[in-house]
Measured scan of single mutants.
Amino acid sequence: SAVVMEEGSPGEVPVLVEPPGLEDVEAALGMDRRTDAYSRSSSVSSQEEKSLHAEELVGRGIPIERVVSSEGGRPSVDLSFQPSQPLSKSSSSPELQTLQDILGDPGDKADVGRLSPEVKARSQSGTLDGESAAWSASGEDSRGQPEGPLPSSSPRSPSGLRPRGYTISDSAPSRRGKRVERDALKSRATASNAEKVPGINPSFVFLQLYHSPFFGDESNKPILLPNESQSFERSVQLLDQIPSYDTHKIAVLYVGEGQSNSELAILSNEHGSYRYTEFLTGLGRLIELKDCQPDKVYLGGLDVCGEDGQFTYCWHDDIMQAVFHIATLMPTKDVDKHRCDKKRHLGNDFVSIVYNDSGEDFKLGTIKGQFNFVHVIVTPLDYECNLVSLQCRKDMEGLVDTSVAKIVSDRNLPFVARQMALHANMASQVHHSRSNPTDIYPSKWIARLRHIKRLRQRICEEAAYSNPSLPLVHPPSHSKAPAQTPAEPTPGYEVGQRKRLISSVEDFTEFV
């Protein structure tokens, strides 16, 4: 048969007729292969192709491409040299491709048809291009793949890379869960390890502090508590009631339409708007009261037996805890006409967050109470924005700035309102402590230090009264110190430094 060459192609190359033996071998191979691939376009007849790359030819070592076609129900084999250009295909004639002069020997084609199974398996396991790669995943090629499931790999992101949580363990979102698992493993320790309690022994800490320079003076030496005195035992138990972190309780009120001037209507609300609910979820963490331990979680007086509701929101960081007394989460009882059960919590909070959804101005004093010092007013606006402002009593104007209003988005509203309420509550605590000038409020841990110092002074006084020969370590507060001759004046800087060093040991009130 003659071949018409394309323009620009090399000279004529004689194409030899395939021997009958080659056709029989390739026909047997075509019957084993699956003929249901995917359909081509209507211009080209339905056909199945599979590209198999052999590394070497037997005796020649030339890479070839073998295409199996099922045109007219008769499979045909096409061998081509890759750099050459194939002729145009037609549905009426068999596929013809040019070969190099080196394939002119018909014996070479017979060798190609009689490829060993080793070469076929190696060509099938190679990388296939384009559409033949999808075909190689079918059941027909499963014989050339190794048996057994593939090893499982770690989760992959859409980009093909490992997620960040699997790369950096410290930033993994499941870090707290692993800590819980470690605690569970520790709890399952053997009885021999049960006595080993991690941490620092208080006796060891005391020993280090006792021999430090801070205890060089007799006034700073630790003293032993009497065991037989019940009054001192009660004082030590009272110390446990003062937490070592700051605590805040903040009221949250929802004002519906037409309720801006009605205290009873505001306290009777059992739910609010959708934006109000989203605002609550951002204030803190939802907790169930019956599962809380009052000595570990500050509840601000809420009952854990269901008297004040089942849930509330709280927030904490390293040095403070805040609980929100939310009116809509507290039960509304029919027998309580004046809502006294709610007001006994909300009316005693220094700061209230008022979500004013009424469309009218909310005035300070609508919720009557002796300790309502500051109101954080949240007014929802259009386009997911809110107006946040402050209202306070006249005696609080020096501590709280009420002249600045803020426009905040719904997303950042819980954070801004919480921070403003916490700052206002700190100012309210300082303002409330002014009624007792001898006990200015600095912080909870300073209050613990003052309680310890008062307890020490009482013990020293009782020891001096029981044994008059012992001198008083600290003179009583009601006694007057003996007159001392004025010492020589020293520079102001040295006096300030000495006073600062003494105050650092005794108390921190002056620095606050």
Rank of each mutant, 00 (worst) to 15 (best):
D217I: 14
P222E: 12
I223G: 11
L225R: 10
P226S: 12
S229K: 07
V236C: 11
L238A: 15
L238Y: 11
Q241H: 08
Q241I: 05
I242H: 04
D246W: 06
D246L: 05
K249G: 06
K249P: 05
K249V: 08
E257D: 07
G258P: 02
Q259A: 03
S260Q: 13
E263H: 03
A265S: 07
S268M: 07
S268C: 07
G272W: 03
Y274N: 06
E278D: 09
F279D: 00
L280T: 04
T281E: 13
T281H: 14
G282Y: 02
G284C: 06
L286H: 07
E288Y: 10
D291T: 11
D295S: 06
L302K: 13
L302Q: 15
D303T: 05
V304M: 13
G306K: 09
E307W: 06
Q310A: 09
T312E: 09
C314G: 07
D317W: 00
I319R: 03
M320A: 13
M320I: 13
V323W: 09
A327H: 04
L329R: 06
P331H: 08
K333Q: 09
K337A: 10
R339C: 15
D341Y: 14
D341G: 15
K343I: 14
L346E: 06
D349P: 10
F350Q: 03
F350W: 07
V351H: 00
N356E: 00
N356P: 00
D357F: 00
S358R: 01
S358I: 01
S358F: 01
D361E: 12
K363A: 11
G365E: 15
G365R: 05
T366P: 04
I367T: 04
Q370C: 15
F371A: 12
N372T: 09
H375W: 15
V378D: 00
T379E: 11
S389Q: 15
Q391P: 00
C392R: 02
L399C: 14
V404R: 06
K406I: 15
K406H: 07
I407D: 02
I407T: 06
N412A: 08
R434M: 11
P437C: 05
P437Q: 06
D439G: 06
Y441C: 13
P442Q: 07
S443D: 08
S443E: 09
K444E: 12
I446N: 13
R450W: 05
H451V: 15
I452A: 07
Q457L: 07
Q457T: 11
A463L: 09
Y465H: 07
Y465F: 10
S469E: 14
L470D: 15
P471T: 09
P476L: 13
S477H: 12
S479T: 08
A483V: 08
T485D: 11
P486D: 09
P489G: 11
T490A: 11
P491F: 11
E494F: 07
R498K: 14
S504W: 06
T509I: 04
